[in-house]
Design a protein around this nucleic acid. Sequence first.
DNA 1: GTGAAAGCGCTAACAC
DNA 2: GTGTTAGCGCTTTCAC
Lengths: 342, 342
Amino acid sequence: MTIKKPANIRDIAALAGVSAGTVSRVMNDKPGVGSETRAHIARLITEYDFRGDSNARQLSLGRSDSLGVVFPLQVSEVVMHPVYPELLGSISDAALASGYDVSLFTTTAEERVEHIVDAFKRKRVDGLILPAASSDDALIQRVVDEGIPTVLVGHRQESARMTWVDCTHDQAIFDIATAMIGSGRTRLVLLNGPKRVSAYQLRSDGFWRAANDARLVDAQEIELGMSYSSGLQAAGDLFTLPRPPDAIVCSADSTAAGVLEEFKRAGIAIPMTAEVSGFDDTDFASHSTPQLTSVRMPLRETGAAAVSLLLNMIDDRTAHPAPRLLDAEVVWRASTSPVGGV
Amino acid sequence: MTIKKPANIRDIAALAGVSAGTVSRVMNDKPGVGSETRAHIARLITEYDFRGDSNARQLSLGRSDSLGVVFPLQVSEVVMHPVYPELLGSISDAALASGYDVSLFTTTAEERVEHIVDAFKRKRVDGLILPAASSDDALIQRVVDEGIPTVLVGHRQESARMTWVDCTHDQAIFDIATAMIGSGRTRLVLLNGPKRVSAYQLRSDGFWRAANDARLVDAQEIELGMSYSSGLQAAGDLFTLPRPPDAIVCSADSTAAGVLEEFKRAGIAIPMTAEVSGFDDTDFASHSTPQLTSVRMPLRETGAAAVSLLLNMIDDRTAHPAPRLLDAEVVWRASTSPVGGV
DNA sequence: GTGAAAGCGCTAACAC
DNA sequence: GTGTTAGCGCTTTCAC
């Protein structure tokens, strides 16, 4: 004969001969229960595999213990594709470690913005992590208007209930471009994504700061999709010019891979005739010929920091945690000359 | 003077001079409300931007309107990396279209299995979509035991409350290998992922079916991680053999990219000396030199089908929808000889 | 067609 | 220490 499974906290209470309140105290590790009673109740909870109903708990508490994460996951050339899975994984891990679930929203398309705001208003999520936002993102404005606790990742903008986490894209690109110039290059090109995406704007900033510091006259920036094919094509185009570049800084390894391939086809020696760098430090970068200088972003730290800041804002309605700027690391490899010259 | 925002359904009811029940009927498009009353209440709801509290609704209804999706998102060589974002995006889109949210779980590691079961038992999710499962997955057993409505993606296993969606990995690889044999190749190699992952087992099946049908004696399968670097290395190793292969079937474009690169280094002509194929039909495949024959999986359809089957099982506790097998498509390109021989 | 009332299962303030 | 009580905000019978 099988034990009828107790359905709710009152059933457990009845079994233990106590009241529901006492069981609640035990389940939430609250004080005010005698150690024997506590042990007894704990045993019953385990025995009957009782978990409670989170909807009821959340209704009572007025919160959802759930974070919304907004990711434009559609495969798109615009988007910094390789970083998403890892970032998402790290956010999820960090949330879980703090007892939060992650609710996923996959686009910021105009018609979906209201769905995200709605999720907050209906108390489905307590706050938002919003990566890769651009300054003209409609969702940002709404989030500010509604006072939704929000942490931006990769876009630096603050307001009362909004802060950000980012890494030093600009400094990394500055360091790379400066090293290229230091090794004698004068005709630099940046193959960049669209600058309305903050991460790309920052890379542009770093690139131009390096070019201007060195009073370079031949630097240029080209905006394109961050794909293998666009790198391939851009490299082809550039080398039909009368004075082709001698250094190409790419905002993605995928684009750099296209450049490498086209250079191979065209017989252009790397790094002798032209230096090339990538971004994202993918598996490709460490195994291409030549190996590709690239930039490693601190993705797991970024995710963890975003969760930590957000929980901070959720727990304390008046908190306004300072933004976090983490270090991106340049991984120097053979596609650029050694730092500091030939 | 700003209007004090009505906090709950009773406030709206008071404003409309009706009872909460009536407002509830309007919000859920239920019959039994006069059209004038309905219009009036609808107007107030819009005016005050009232949404209701989903925790309360869920408590009352006993469900969460939320689907759990389990994705091992940690960057890993074992995992079919490029398909995840798109699959996840399509699941999310389909769920949203049916009024469901998506709750994300990022690992099936032993210690996390209970967390996922827990989420169901606490009514945080109504069911599970579980992609890329392998047959020895501990979560599958738990899910069956607990009777959690579940749809497997990429692993074919059924039980009372569990069904699956998959595509024809095996047939695609069979077609490719058969075409290679048809164009005169006799020494085929499959570079495959670990066979405990069902998708890789199926590719193995298709490969060996083709090899056996043709009574090939020189076919072999090598298990490795599905990365660029493992393709690079495997290709190098294979061509130190006395009788190197004349056709390499890869279970991922990333691996095929490594093979292509190594062949280029070694001066092996493709497809003349050896044919090569990939899987996933990434951007690389359509732009490499030579362009890469690859397999395009119906990812968006897969996600949509998974959601549809799952909602079916959630709505009807006795439903046991038939599994869905979708077609994977071989995209023939220059890295293999034309279908049917030279 | 609409209102009243009884839950859904939990938490927390207040008694004792 | 522990029980009692009053919600949390919604849905849904059951009257009228």
